[in-house]
Amino acid sequence: MRPNKKIFMSVCIVIGIFFIVEAAGFYMARSVHSRDREVVTPDRDVLMAKNRELWQKISSLSPKRVHIVVDTAKNILYLRNGNRIIREMVVSCGSGNILEDPAGDRVWVFDTPRGEHTIKSKLVHPNWVRPDWAFIEEGEPIPQNATDRMQEGVLGDYALGLGNGYFIHGTLYTRLLGRNVTHGCIRVGDEDLKKIFKTTPIGAKVTVF
């Protein structure tokens, strides 16, 4: 066989195999598609009644009173009453940065925790009890005495606790509102914080996404 003819035949075989695989793959994808069909046929009226019931059940799960929704991507906090938005506020959420403890194997990830939380505590003129990472980040030694951890005035006039050391609180850095700069807490401007504090009861839901 001449070399040119040999190359031509090889190319034809490769193209042929390619098309066979394409056709087989296409056929298999289509057969999976039709295999999963359902043929259950309940009565139309029964179905409509079931749908109404399901809709009511789902609607009954949504918070009926004041609750908070936080969009960490846009740094927006929505204060809501049922389905109505009472106020939209620009906030600061977690930076997503990582801090490693040079002395040990501890690692902190500064994300605002996603998911559903509840307001667990409400504080007026709160003091910040600086955690270990605050000292490590600043390159300072970690104090042994608890009172050395106290810092006044940095959390604003109010704080609402979400648990695990996360709070909705005020800020001295108002020009950074709208940016992801915090260590996981949700920083709010003074007037907005006052509104949240006065409107939101302990036990209210906070959904973070």
Binding site: A29, L61, P63, V69, E116, T207, F209
Partner: peptide, 18 residues
């Protein structure tokens, strides 16, 4: 979450295989 819409995103085009 809990049946309430938190965010809506648009899809311009959908291609499906199997």
């Amino acid at each position: 979450s809990r049946g309430i819409v938190l965010k809506g995103l648009k899809i311009r085009k959908v291609e499906v295989w199997g």
